[in-house]
């Protein structure tokens, strides 16, 4: 093995250790406030029930992972949190899904204002056909930021947080479409955190990334945890185990085809001592 490769391996090993250590700090999350709470939440696409009777909490300053096989409704649940389904005809939620005790699907909740408090990172990088700077400033300008200096400072800060600053600092005003896939995804994360949302939703943010970029994103999540509440949907169980405080395991009910929450608890327990046989089968790889 060449020296360079050895070095990279050691580096990523070190990163792994660092990431593990950060997670271990947080074995007890039960004292943290409930930022989001679902109580008997159901979601429908027309007459089809996509989610049935979901009850769980997502705690402030912690990372909640939602895992499960394809079609189990985990993305539907995540997107329900900031009402991304609003444009889909026939899509509606009922039951309770609370942000700081206020029902997200209540009549008094304005979806646009809600989304300014809940940021989102998508599965595929979806940068705007604008410059790198304007991409990140987009949410800030919506929030009423116009002072050039303040904007520039926040843009730099977010790019640094997303570990992208060094790669793009010399071309902030060239198109974001010129970045690589991994860079674009980190740009999307920087863009999502720029307006300082309270909650950050991540829908399989690493599925289009290579392992190194994935690790960078995970490190970033652990750092962001200090300020934000993070909910991440992932197919990658190692990722859930590495980088989350609590884990929800979902499955599709074979009879009704609607998504159910099978088990929810501290990540450590879900992966080492699951209470439900189906969870155990899934996390040990004997299923799906």
């Amino acid at each position: 093995m060449s020296e360079a490769r050895l070095l990279t391996n050691t580096n990523s090993l070190r990163r792994n250790v660092a990431v593990g250590a950060l997670v271990r700090e947080r074995e007890h999350t039960d004292t943290l406030a409930h930022k989001l709470e679902a109580k008997n939440f159901n979601f429908y696409y027309g007459t089809f029930q996509a989610l049935s009777d979901i009850s769980m909490v997502m705690r402030e300053h912690s990372i909640t992972a939602i895992i499960g096989p394809s079609g189990c409704g985990k993305s539907t649940l995540l997107r329900a949190i900031n009402r991304m389904h609003d444009q889909t005809p026939g899509a509606r939620g009922n039951g309770q899904l609370m942000l700081d005790g206020q029902n997200i699907y209540g009549p008094e909740t304005d979806a646009v204002l809600l989304r300014r408090r809940i940021g989102m990172v998508f599965q595929r990088p979806n940068v705007f056909a604008k410059s790198i700077f304007d991409n990140i400033a987009y949410g800030l300008r919506i929030a009423g930021w116009h002072d050039r200096k303040q904007l520039a400072a926040r843009v730099e800060q977010c790019l640094r947080q997303a570990a992208l600053w060094d790669e793009v600092k010399d071309r902030l005003h060239s198109s974001a479409l010129g970045l690589s896939g991994g860079q674009q995804q980190r740009l999307c994360i920087a863009r999502a955190i720029a307006p300082r949302p309270e909650v950050l939703l991540m829908d399989e943010p690493c599925s289009a990334l290579d392992p190194i970029a994935t690790l960078k994103v995970e490190e970033l999540m652990l750092e962001l945890r200090r300020e934000y509440t993070i909910v991440i949907v992932t197919h990658n169980m190692q990722q859930a185990a590495r980088a989350s405080d609590e884990t929800a395991f979902m499955l599709m009910d074979p009879a009704t085809r609607s998504g159910q929450l099978i088990e929810f608890g501290p990540t450590n327990r879900i992966f080492t001592n699951p209470q439900d046989k189906r969870t155990e089968d899934y996390v040990t790889g004997q299923f799906g």
Binding site: N82, M84, Q87, V112, L113, R115, R116, I118, G119, M120, F122, R124, N126, V127, F128, A129, Y138, G139, I142, A143, C188, R191, A192, P195
Partner: peptide
Amino acid sequence: PHTMREAAMALGAPKWW
């Protein structure tokens, strides 16, 4: 792409914006 509209929507942009 629909994903671009979603990105703007998730940042709290009203439809017209």
